[in-house]
Design a protein around this nucleic acid. Structure first.
Lengths: 196, 196
DNA sequence: CGATGCATGTAAGCTGTTACATGATTGC
DNA sequence: GCAATCATGTAACAGCTTACATGCATCG
């Protein structure tokens, strides 16, 4: 019993949650989610679901009368078991620490830019983050998400995460561009220990 | 002028920050960072830096007397310019929203597990997150990080992010397993709007 | 009757990983 | 002297992306 990849786990999860869906539906679900890092390209989703079908994790029901040649997918008992295994196997150090953030990556080298470029970058990113957070907030309040408790909890996590990122970016901007504040590294550490 | 990939940008940034370093040093830096999602395999780093060298972004100084055949890397003026471009190009919607979290991915499908499996998963992940956050806290207080303001700011972001993730996980556990609390989705939304 | 959306798929390529292979240096 | 670390690389593969290709259904 091989390990499912991240995308395989998520796709199998989507098929399991939706009563009956097409591969196209799985793609749409991924594309609609603002908190998904995947492009959900046809070139990944279709071969992936064909693979899962070949391994007996999802079953496909073809309707000959359907002109579009739709293939309706459903999880098999084996598929549900594998999904559970995939979730549980995610409770290890690798999965917990493995979160990538392109904005944070750039922060480490922000000193390479001229001061006004640094300001420009931070301003731009903060504006984008603000609309992104607002979008996530609206997404959470929409009925589409609220019908499933776990979907709500997941979206709530995404929102909280991005709220924190925004708060952090604003704090960075203040530290770097507010002359009435201390700019030393130690002052940051002190302010942090208060919140813990 | 092609776009640098994420890993290329980060490696170029590391070479730029360190006065003089080897490819091995770049790897070590990436491997040591707890907030890095890359495995920093030799198979990625060496060809990558050779490529950057071929494009004139880093220059390598070989010492014939060095038995190990060490190649000391330094960023060129062109390399520094590309690094700046890479940072600035990161201020767009794609980069701001593109953050993946394997724990959150699983949350969406946690309902697939039996109640006690759900509890087990959350407990396990929370324990791991706690030690991970503690590690990040210590990392921030160490001298190695504090010598560079931007490194401190980056590490601070990682810490804040993981503190929020931990808080969220604890909240989820409480919502799902504390009988004296409401479990409805709407109660979550109400509690969220307070924090905004 | 034409645009948009639903629906399926393939081929080539990019980016990173695992696993292997080699050798010098340093510290105990 | 020998283990651990420093140091460099390659070959094969995995996983996802872009770009292309096709055709039906639905709504205005």
């Amino acid at each position: 019993m091989r390990q499912l990849t991240e995308l395989e786990g998520v796709c199998l999860g989507i098929v399991s949650r939706l009563a009956s869906c097409t591969a196209y539906g799985v793609r749409s679900e991924l594309l609609a989610s603002p908190s998904s890092s995947w492009r959900a390209s046809a070139g990944s989703i279709y071969p992936l679901l064909t693979r899962l079908e070949g391994e007996g994790l999802v079953s496909a029901h073809e309707d000959k009368n359907d002109g579009r040649g739709r293939r309706l997918l459903r999880p098999s008992a084996k598929g549900k078991k594998w999904l559970r295994k995939w979730i549980i196997a995610g409770a290890d150090k690798e999965h917990v620490s493995q979160i990538s953030d392109p904005v944070r990556s750039r922060m480490f080298f922000l000193g390479t830019l001229a001061k006004r470029e640094q300001k420009q970058y931070l301003d731009d990113v903060i504006v984008l983050m603000e609309s992104f957070v607002e979008e996530a907030r609206e997404n959470l309040n929409s009925d589409a998400v609220a019908e499933n408790l776990y979907t709500t909890l997941g979206s709530l996590g995404a929102l909280k995460l991005n709220e924190t990122r925004l708060e952090w970016l604003k704090q960075v901007r203040e530290k770097l561009f507010s002359p009435n504040q201390s700019r030393s590294a130690s002052s940051l550490k002190q302010s942090r220990s208060v919140s813990s």
